[in-house]
Design a binder for these strands. Structure first.
Length: 107
DNA sequence: GATTTGACTACTA
DNA sequence: GTAGTAGCCAAAT
């Protein structure tokens, strides 16, 4: 639907992230056609706090939990990822490529 | 309507 | 391999 704003699009894709998988801001942005607007995805996540968007599955290109500071507690994001079978060490996802989920590859 | 910000990415030194 | 800078676009003030 074209009545959706940029945020809605991000939310939709983020909700499509399968369990135990992660993706990067740039990948989502590119899928939305806003390649280069990776920051916008992060901004959208800022408002996805109250949504059903698994923002903890969205990390930067390095697999680093840069947005973990925006979550509640301190290691909540890491805990959620580890709970899904993703190994996280020092706020960084291990085997990031292995857990990487490309929306364009699935959609 | 212009300025600032922001959970990024890529390039360069 | 690490560090710093620039480019990016959309929303909030």
């Amino acid at each position: 639907m074209s009545n959706e704003g940029f945020f809605e699009k991000v939310y939709r894709v983020a909700k499509l992230i399968p369990h135990g998988r992660v993706t990067s801001y740039g990948a989502i942005a590119k899928h939305l056609g806003a390649a280069g607007s990776a920051r916008m995805v992060g901004w959208a996540m800022n408002g996805s706090n109250n949504k059903d968007v698994p923002a903890h599955r969205v990390v930067n290109r390095n697999g680093l939990l840069t947005g973990k500071h925006h979550f509640q507690g301190t290691n909540l994001m890491q805990q959620l990822l580890e709970s899904e079978g993703i190994l996280v060490v020092d706020n960084k996802i291990q085997n990031f490529e292995k857990h990487f989920w490309d929306p364009k590859n699935e959609l």
